[in-house]
Design a protein around this nucleic acid. Sequence first.
RNA 1: UGUAGACGUAACGUGC
Length: 425
Amino acid sequence: TFSYNCMLQVLIKSRRYGSASEIVQSEMINSASHPPDAYTFSALLSGFCKAGEMDEAVRLFDFVRSRTRVWPNLVLLGILIDGLCKAHRVTEALDYFRQMQDLGLSADIVIYSSLLSGLGKEGRTDDAMELFEAMVARGCTPNVITYNSLIDGLCRSGKIDGAMGILERMVGAGCSPTVVTYTSLVDGLSKTGNVDAASKLMKEMRRRGFVPDVITYNSLMFGLVRESKTDVALGYLSEMMDVGCEPDVITYTAVVDGLCKGGNVDKAIEVLRGMIRKRCSPNVVTYTAVIDGLCKGGRMDEAMVLLSEMLERGCKPNLVTYNSLLHGYCKLGRVDEALEMIEDMGSQGCSINVVTYGAIVDGLCKAGNVSEARKMVSVMQTGSSRIRPDTVIFNTLVDGLCKTGNVGEAVEVLGEMSDAGCKPD
RNA sequence: UGUAGACGUAACGUGC
């Protein structure tokens, strides 16, 4: 069994989940000499989770529970719970958590940390705090990862003071923060428009002997360019190189995108050229950021040139890239060209999503063609892609109708909205 | 101590 497990590990590391699964089924399940054990299933289970095949993962877990002699242990359950959290299925993860005692298991620190991280990413900070207190009350002592998960969740919801409070609490409990702790806080401050506080915190972490890494710098850079502190950001860019913390594609992309969003697209293009000179290859996110900047500035021709450049460099545009272009055409009232773009996407094997339609619907409304926009909302639900309209789509329609004096029809749409299970905001 | 689980960073659509 050990040898088989090692082989499975290798397959799973090379992302050949199907082959791994087949081997377990054909060679192990019915074997007397090398039956699967908890390690076998953990390898498979984490493979499914990493591949995003959560339905398969759940089926496997239930299979192990009901059809095998292997009793699900904390690690197996931990893998499943973490996978569900990462797939934004925290509620189901909590269901498994609550059913643990039926399996004779009691949650450990890893399971709590997964759940805290998942809740935090969903914005459920009150639930996270409650779970944290419950775990402490149960006598489970949080470690640095537990605290970091909680702090990060609070930061994501903009609750920086609360996060600082947890930092104090962890230090008070004798748990030393790490660079990850500080990076969550720096990122939270940057994203809430407090980049000055973010850079202060970075200085403080250094004073306490922690070394910021590229991710810490990237979080800070994001905040700096969002507040148009371009020169300071470029200063930090050289500082990074000086201290041996090489800027990576994410650093440059954050800068490039921030410049674009601040209306400084030409400067962004300079930085794009600069990163290539520094042997850092822009990726699809980098190019899309610049393309979006050009599109928002109505510079469609240049955007299309950049699109061909990225193709030449072997970088494949994705859904977001096309959505940016399509939005650009819509904003210029060139809805026909936007619709052509949808065709192109199909032929490129690129799917479309609710954002694609959001841009089209808005384009039609703003072009004064609100009735066509309403039709489009029905089309999107019936086509082969079957996309559910969301709040943004309905808001766009309501706005379009109101601005053309059709308030009655807008109220009608409000009704369709709740029929679609979509809440007005 | 023969094999398994948890934490931080970048791009797209709506109103004023």
